[in-house]
């Protein structure tokens, strides 16, 4: 008998070593996530994937699936929590979507759309953040960084480099480029690296590509992130 968990009452099988997120994705169930991509070691920092496991809140992307677990995901309470988390991510940075190249292709924005987030709720921080345009082909705009570490992991785990890291603590936490100057141009980052393309937001952008697809015809303009995620990430995962 294979082992199973239930998610919102639906029985789904899992294999030893899978997380709740893995099992859900394999079964075609979308759990909202931003800091998770199936190919990279889970990081568990954005908390958007919070689910209730046997009555306790856990991050689905890091929590191992275990036989008989009762997982709740699409409850009103958890959806509200996720909306609040997304609002916090927005107010902690500077997200002016109308002027952002990533708009329409941005996962942070798409999660906001998915959760029907219509306002920011919290007072805005308007933090002072750096923009690094020194690299000839890649641009780093910290105003939009949500510290998901996907670029850090992609650089290490897929590109075999070590271009990015997180530095500082608490409200001062920020992304750094690993070069003595701290500038992206002095790292070995190439525009073809996975790290240059993995950012779920518009913090890392490949230059001169931002408006190749017009606004209004972009990924999430007409398709919800749950569908996009299951179609694309599920495939990567199944391989």
């Amino acid at each position: 008998m294979s082992k199973t968990i239930t998610i919102d009452g639906k029985v789904i099988p899992f294999e030893e070593g899978q997380t709740i997120m893995d099992a859900a994705m394999a079964a075609g169930i979308y759990i909202p996530h931003l800091c998770h991509q199936p190919e990279f070691t889970p990081h568990g920092s954005c908390k958007l994937c919070t689910v209730k496991v046997n009555g306790r809140n856990c991050s689905a992307c890091t929590f191992p699936a275990m036989d008989g677990q009762d997982v709740l995901s699409e409850t009103e309470e958890l959806i509200n929590d996720r909306r609040k988390i997304t609002q916090m991510l927005f107010v902690e940075g500077n997200h002016l979507c109308p002027g952002c190249e990533k708009t329409g292709n941005c996962q942070l924005q798409a999660v906001g759309y998915h959760l029907n987030m219509l306002d920011n709720h919290f007072p805005l921080f308007y933090p002072d953040r750096e923009v690094d345009a020194s690299h000839p082909d890649v641009m780093l705009d910290q105003n939009r960084c949500i510290l998901c570490t996907l670029c850090v992991r992609a650089s290490q785990q897929e590109d075999g480099k070590n271009v990015f890291a997180i530095s500082g603590r608490g409200i001062d936490k920020h992304l750094i480029a690993n070069a003595e100057s701290g500038l992206l141009k002095d790292t070995d980052l190439d525009a073809t690296d996975r790290a240059a393309h993995i950012c779920p937001t518009g913090a890392i952008l490949v230059k001169r590509t931002g408006y190749q697809v017009p606004i209004g015809q972009r990924i999430y303009d007409h398709k919800e992130i749950d569908q996009v995620s299951l179609e694309t990430e599920h495939l990567q995962h199944g391989e």
């Binding site: 927005f90 979507c97 306002d119 920011n120 805005l124 308007y126």
Partner: peptide
């Protein structure tokens, strides 16, 4: 009712906040 990006998050004029 807050109508539009600027009413909701300051929008483009808020660029001067820095």
């Amino acid at each position: 009712v807050a109508v539009g990006a600027c009413a909701i998050n300051g929008g483009l004029p808020a660029l001067r906040n820095h």
